[in-house]
Amino acid sequence: MQEPVPFSTSAPSSPDGIGLGVGLRTVHFAHILKNWPAVDWFEIISENFMNCGGRPRNVLDQIAERYPIVMHGVSMSIGSTDPLNLDYLQKLKQLATETKARWVSDHVCWTGVASKNTHDLLPVPYNEETLRHLVDRIGIVQDILERPLVLENPSTYVTFRDSTMTEWDFIRYLTMETGCQLLLDVNNVYVSSVNHDFDARRYLDSIPVDRVVQFHLAGHTNMGTHCIDTHDGHVVDPVWELFRYAHERGIRASTLLEWDASIPEFDVVHAEVLKAKSWLQTAHALDEPYVINPPSMETAPSRLAGIPQPALYATAEVE
């Protein structure tokens, strides 16, 4: 195994990082440019801006002049056995430089092999071979980006028989071996805990507190037998409870709300992340295990297929 990479940390100095942010989405461009809302920071989907010379990039440049920007990618495919895409990494680095991105994140996943991209965040088997593979590749990426890579725990829907360790152990070992940092998606922990029948608090207990630089919060779809990470609604109470539990464990990090389908007005999205303040004001741990309830009429899936994120595409403006 490699020695941990001796990078200076990019973690924010404030206890809660750079505060409460919102994922930048094209439907909110006009509102943001008109109102310059009092949001602490924005997270962008890196791939939507890497080759873009049109309005999305122009809007991003204006926003980056006024707000901290964090880059969040969905195509690094750090877990794939295909070679790393060096052109992609150079463009990622260039965008990070141009937007003065506070940090660059992606997922503990692979998106395709044999030169194909499924555009999904596919899970890896958690075992020593995979760990060695990711450690090597994270080292290469960090050398190219010249900064620590921030990795997010994805929502997953299958468990491989070839896994020989838990996801939380795997992620902890990754941080130990590479010096990478973590984007802790609390909704994904919840979704995976339902899908894989584990205790979400046990997951959070294993996460190294000092490696987390960012939280993700989002809505999901309860399918009755499992949950899907659809990012199409409000954050449910059990996820807020987990968020509070992570905070009680001492994890302090910038917090971001993702809303990617059935996106409401900007103020609704912003208000959702601001709920974090009130949830953290009442501190008490969870007493009851989570119970997955069958979808009611109110909570039935908003889309039949329940497409897991990411499913992002910028639509052209035409006259």
Partner: peptide
């Protein structure tokens, strides 16, 4: 290749993807 969960078979789990 894929373990079942309490609620879903291995096939149903893979079909999510």
């Amino acid at each position: 290749m894929i373990l079942p969960s309490r609620a879903l078979s291995s096939q149903r789990r893979l079909e999510v993807y």
